[in-house]
Write a protein that binds this DNA or RNA. Sequence first.
DNA 1: CAGTGAGCGAGCTTCCGCTTGACTT
Length: 771
Amino acid sequence: MSKNLVIVESPAKAKTIEKILGNEFVVESSFGHIRDLVSKGMGVEIDNGFKPIYEVSKEKKDVVKKLKKLAKEAETVWLASDEDREGEAIAWHLAEALNLNPATTNRIVFHEITKTAIQNAVQTPRRIDQNLVNAQQARRVLDRLVGFELSPVLWKKVRRGLSAGRVQSVSVRLIVEREREIRNFESSSSFRVVAQLTNSKGDTLQAELNHRFEKEEDALKFLEQCKNSKLSIADLETKPAKRSPAAPFTTSTLQQEASRKLSFSVSQTMSVAQKLYEGGLITYMRTDSVNLSNDAIEAAKGEISSYYGEEYSNPRRYSTKNKGAQEAHEAIRPTNMASHAAGADRQQKRLYDLIWKRTIASQMSDAKLERTTVHIEIDGNPYKFVAKGEVIQFDGFLRAYLEGTDDEEVEEKNILPKLHVDEVLEYTSISATERFTKHPPRFTEASLVKKLEELGIGRPSTYAPTISTIQKRGYVEKSDLEGELRKYQQLVLEAGNVEVNTLEERTGADKGKMMPTDIGMVVNDFLVEHFEQILDYNFTAKVESEFDRIADGSEGWVDMIDEFYKQFHPKIEDAEDAERASGERHLGDHPDTGKPIFAKVGRYGPMVQMGHVEDEEKPQFASIPKEMHIDTIKLEDALELFKLPRVVGEYKDKPVKAAIGRFGPYVQHEKIFASLKGELSPLTIDLETAIQLIEEKREQVANRNIKVFEDVDPIIEVLNGRYGPYLKQGRRNFKIPKDTEPKELTLEEAQKIISEAGEKKPKRAPRKAKK
DNA sequence: CAGTGAGCGAGCTTCCGCTTGACTT
């Protein structure tokens, strides 16, 4: 039994701190928040001063029980959760749940895990800061009110199971608006002129014309003029320049770099980093701070001096540029700078390498460069060729690490030969190539995180979950666009002759980028129309400044929430009276019958509809396949869709049909349904491919069947599932206990499993709620 | 799961942030 109990948030941190504090202290972890608003219902008594109703979270019951026991036995309890709004709230919830007196309980903080920081903290305990706790309560209650009032409106107006919130809805908006920009983008082309030149000594250099020609004939005219023009150097300028290293990693910059350099997904980066953290190899990976501890700066200095040389060392402190940063932790860095490589597997090793290099580089000298710009005159022509060169005089931090870039086109910077003013140059070739303007890029997971951080939306612990939520809800999908071929012109002047070529390139191809779905767009438009305030990119920033006022005691949290709710809630009521949101678009009328055809999002997803619901003759419906969208589908596509289901052909004397069902496109033969993936469309699939898919599926199904009890009604099947064997009766599935061999299962045992599974009713198919 | 887009109308879905394992139909 120990006199002192210290409670921190993370178990890995607890272990480290326990070692530092010695045997007078027991250090335990709360595993993050232990209490939250009740999970069922609103959890806020709106009519009772917005009183929050908290409960110990289900998965934290055991943790709280254990901490309660230890707290009772200890003489002194030290609440050492993180030094930020959420950490303060965790301390307060702990005090409440463990029956500690908040007025006397010790609250300590350290934002780096070093011996000095921890010992200092224990010397200077304070009390729980109730203002900061209240700021957190305001944040929590606001998010619950927004999320749990908005989402039900969507269930009613769009589709069941949807969700909306302060963070996810703005994330979707960014992606939707970017996609619209891309769709509305009109590409224009111009001719970029590049010359390959030589001087009298035979040295070569490349230069670009300081003008782009809009018309091919002008480019041609220019090249014709160049045939006999003298090229000479008009001026030559050399300027010193420097480059400085990037700050050490935060969660968001780590996610961006790991995406650029290692092709890691945002969530993959976090789980690999978690492993490194648990192995004691790096500091905490969910942080918005670029700060390094004094110990770390010292260690980096020593490491750089001995490994690269003293002239490479330049200790620096960085400060955050992000307004919302709470900086409860250090930047992400190696715990031991002398360890140049670490990690249990290839992924861990690669991520560690990135972290080590970035940290070390941040403490190294600037790179010194020399940039040269040469202007080359064309006799009798107003335009000039420009050549740019860059020479590294001292590599500095570049020796360790260079930050990646999102730009697709990086300006080429070559090394120029020795040149002088008035020197005459000859061309070996001058080419004018048609180049097209590019639409803004789609977001990747990582570039979305970057944007969210800039807007102050979301926190290091939520970037990865947010990306997965908006995909799970079906608002956003990763793209897989093949693009198309485009012709472009290239004119080349060589040896006094101009040749004109038509070349081909692929354009519009995009893989793994974030694209909105039809549902995503419909939901977004509905939310933007009715809840402009919440969907505003600055909403989070605005409420954050209110939270700051609560934290410093100049505003009460209930007043703030009351103010907000007074104007938010009426909008909910307005939206509930609004039309159903479907994104309906009139495509045109049927050429024969004249019936109107619409595209919209229905209960089961995007669809086309022919005729009106009120009409005497009922309307016809058809699902829209993934490759088409409600806001781009054409009338003739829609007419094709009404021809589904389509008989592809005959196989074993039975028809093979193709159609689009509730779960997407499929082909069917007797009782076998095989879904269509990728480029396959029910409109175009051929019999051979369809049969192949059906046979594959038939084999899969056969392999899944272990045993069937046909004597009972309904029959019981023993199947092999993704997670092992299970029982199936009717629409219900039952887990088979681990100690049972599925092949030897008897009917009696199977029935016992089913009856023991309880009286839970099978889930019903969703039914539409009428407005 | 499966070819619809009604209605009967119970009970259900949902937020953001803080932490790790548990363990899936």
